[in-house]
Amino acid sequence: MTDAWEWDPSLYSGSARYYAQGRAAYPPELATAFAEELGLDGTGRLLDVGCGPGSLTLLLAGLFEEALGLDADGDMLAEASRLAVNAGNCRWVHRRAEELPAGLGRFRLVTFAQSFHWLDRPRVAAAVRGTLTPDGVCAHVHASTHESVHPAIAELVREYLGPVRRAGRSALPAGTPGGEAAIYRAAGFHGPRRFEVPGRVVTRTVDDVVAGVFSLSSSAPHLFGDRRAAFEAELRRRLASAETFTLRLPEIAVDLWFTRGC
Rank of each mutant, 00 (worst) to 15 (best):
G69K: 10
L30W: 05
R82P: 00
L38P: 07
L40V: 05
F34H: 07
A84I: 00
W5D: 01
G88H: 11
L70R: 06
D71Q: 10
A16P: 09
E36G: 12
A31L: 08
L11V: 14
A4N: 06
G39T: 11
D71N: 05
R45D: 15
L30G: 03
L46G: 08
L56G: 06
L11Q: 06
G39I: 13
D48G: 08
E37F: 07
G52Y: 06
P9G: 10
P9L: 03
S81E: 15
F64E: 10
D75I: 01
E79M: 12
D73V: 03
E6C: 02
G42V: 13
E66K: 15
G50S: 11
A80C: 03
Y19V: 04
L59F: 05
L58D: 01
S15F: 04
A67D: 09
C90W: 00
W5P: 05
R23D: 02
F34Q: 06
R91T: 12
P53W: 09
A16M: 11
A20F: 00
L38A: 07
A87Q: 10
M76W: 01
A25Q: 14
A25C: 03
G69I: 06
L63Q: 14
C90R: 01
A20Y: 00
A35P: 05
A67P: 07
L46F: 09
G54Y: 08
N89V: 03
L56I: 10
G69N: 01
P53N: 13
A33H: 00
Y18R: 02
W7Q: 07
G14P: 05
W92Y: 12
G69E: 03
C51D: 08
W92D: 06
A72M: 10
F34N: 05
T2A: 09
